[in-house]
Design a protein around this nucleic acid. Structure first.
Lengths: 158, 158
DNA sequence: TTATGTATGTAATATCATAACACGTCAAGA
DNA sequence: TCTTGACGTGTTATGATATTACATACATAA
């Protein structure tokens, strides 16, 4: 387990808080946060890092859920659609969204040394992207913005 | 084959031009644009769209090169490192860079209807990303910026 | 020529992801 | 009440993507 996103914080708190908001959001939108889905989200929150689908699957299976890939992929896909999790394509992995419900275009900062992933405020980034796309007449619906580099801790070590 | 990046253009010209610059750049940097590597780049340029590694491999194998995955992955990885091609993670695919040598942080605009990929000028996007990262003390080395949406042509159809 | 680094070929395997179908549950409407 | 349809889950099977490890060849410079 790598260090939490670049700084220490009250993990139990942020985790429980997010989970509560996730419940509220899904019921509000008519979606169902079923046991598998809820557990998948909890697993991501507990790990507090990006996890591969098979890794999540393993944990789910250990708790009595199905142990075939679609079980994990479906739960994760649901979470992503609901804005409760994000997919990090560079890592073929998923991570819990730390502030669901708030409108945000996430940008991910991936440390190449310790693999920690942080979610940065990317509204200005998204705005610049929309503008660049508009120049070509392209309309952006979703965007993946992923940066690879060094987190503060790993910079210090080097 | 989908339409070239959102507008018609002299394809043979842009292709040959890029290839010539690729030669110059690699020799200048001490890297070797060997036959497989050169041919992989040509294949990407001819296709003028994002291609999967296995698709490129098939073409290479048909021309007498090795037919195992590493052949394609190594050539493509080389091209990406040299800035002659880009990897589109959302599509698990690669595409030739249309203006190698020019410093640029590419952003890709992927049409979800026709799968065409365009490379947008993303200097402002990258600047915004660097700034957001700096707020967290993170230093960006490489970035993948990929947008999914609708190209002008497909917007017109809808 | 020999040593060294780099490039390529190949086999084997690891990792990631989806299609297709069966079964169960629940709620809306006949 | 019965039926129907939508949704969620489980499972089998397979497809698609990517890498490790090792062998061989080839260039360059000491």
């Amino acid at each position: 387990m790598t260090a939490p996103a670049f700084q220490l914080h009250d993990h139990a708190h942020c985790s429980g808080d997010v989970l509560a908001r996730a419940e509220a959001l899904t019921t509000a939108s008519g979606a169902r946060l079923t046991p598998v889905r809820r557990r998948a989200l909890e697993i991501l929150l507990e790990a507090h890092r990006a996890m591969g689908a098979y890794e999540v699957l393993q944990r789910l299976a250990a708790e009595g859920y199905g142990n075939q890939p679609p079980v994990a992929y479906r739960a994760l896909e649901f979470l992503v659609e609901q804005g409760l999790a994000h997919r990090i394509r560079r890592l073929n992995a998923f991570t819990a969204c730390m502030h669901p419900g708030e409108a945000h275009a996430p940008a991910f900062l991936i440390c190449r040394a310790c693999d920690t992933v942080a979610e940065a405020a990317a509204a200005p980034v998204r705005a610049a992207l929309d503008a660049a796309a508009a120049d070509l007449g392209f309309v952006v619906e979703r965007a993946n913005i992923e940066a690879l580099g060094l987190c503060p801790a790993c910079q210090a070590q080097a």
